[in-house]
Amino acid sequence: MAVLINEQIRAAEVDLTGLDGEALGVVSREEALALARAAKADLVCTSLLSSPPPCRLAAKGTGKARTPKPTAPGAAAAKAKELRLTPGIEEHDYRTKLRQADKLLRGGTPLQLVVRAAGAKEAAAAKAVLERLLADLKEAGVRESGIQTSGKGAQVKVNPR
């Protein structure tokens, strides 16, 4: 949600609310800016969805303080890392994926384990690979839900312990 402050507001008229929450009615943008300057306050518009847009007088600097700050990509909730396998995975490749998954789980990263199958015939093998992997990872992580199977494979989400 964008918050517009002072000269950023482009509407010709605004529905103004005073510093103490009193309704001042619909006034021109220039008159609202003049009132804000006289009161040593900011003119803050929080919604552009109505006409005229609702604006309020707010103490200097508080309008910017209420604006939502952009979050850094790493600051958001931990996104699950996806590891893909195949139903006919070789033993060496399996151990490599197992080490990778163990390292990520011990580091606190949730995993989405996905086994892609060519068809319904390989779906059972895909589920078996996931069950084996979950058994090998039981010390590092716990599955969030059951193994979800479809005609194209199987997947499961694993959270760190």
Rank of each mutant, 00 (worst) to 15 (best):
I9N: 02
A11K: 02
E13A: 09
T17E: 08
L19V: 00
G25T: 02
V27N: 10
R29K: 15
E31Q: 11
A32N: 03
A32S: 03
L33P: 08
A34W: 05
A36H: 06
A36E: 09
A38H: 05
A38Y: 00
A41G: 02
L43V: 00
C45W: 09
T46E: 15
T46F: 14
S47T: 10
L48V: 11
L48A: 10
S50G: 11
S51Q: 12
S51T: 15
S51Y: 11
C55L: 03
A59C: 02
K64H: 12
R66Q: 12
T67H: 13
T67F: 03
P68S: 12
T71A: 13
T71C: 05
A72D: 15
A72P: 02
G74Q: 10
G74W: 07
A77R: 14
A78R: 13
K79D: 08
A80Q: 11
A80R: 11
K81S: 12
L85F: 13
L85S: 14
P87I: 01
E90T: 06
E90I: 05
H92L: 14
H92Y: 09
D93W: 08
D93Y: 06
Y94G: 03
T96R: 13
L98W: 09
R99Y: 01
L104Q: 00
L105I: 04
L105A: 06
P110C: 08
L111H: 00
Q112S: 05
V115W: 05
R116E: 15
A118Q: 09
A120C: 08
K121A: 15
E122C: 05
A123K: 11
K127R: 15
A128V: 13
E131N: 06
L133D: 08
A135P: 04
L137W: 05
